[in-house]
Amino acid sequence: MPELPELDPVIHGKLRLAVLSLLVGVEEADFTWLRDKTGSTDGNLGAQMMKLEEAGYVAMQKHFAERKPQTLYRMTPAGRKALAKYVAALKRLLGGAL
């Protein structure tokens, strides 16, 4: 029997998966946009973004837009690769139902 694939625990968290799915369709997005789209709190999102950064799946950049501080996130090539691998693993686990 073929071995079942393991799901990347960093991506498998719902909020982290939601963030990566949002980032996959855009070049970059700011923290507020991600918070609004996911409906999460500042604290929770901040903690999850840190985990994604530590895993090398997202890159963060801070700058000022119209005198307001802005934190921009973009998905790294490693993040895209990991998400693609996660989707492939999900497909196998669900028996190709995707």
């Binding site: 799901l7 498998h12 799915s21 949002l22 789209k37 996911t38 669900l94």
Partner: peptide, 24 residues
Amino acid sequence: EGGTTRDDLVQRVALMETMIAEGR
């Protein structure tokens, strides 16, 4: 966070679809 039942996985798929559409 870490559900791996079939329902959990199906939920993950639905979540990804929703968020990808939302991002676009």
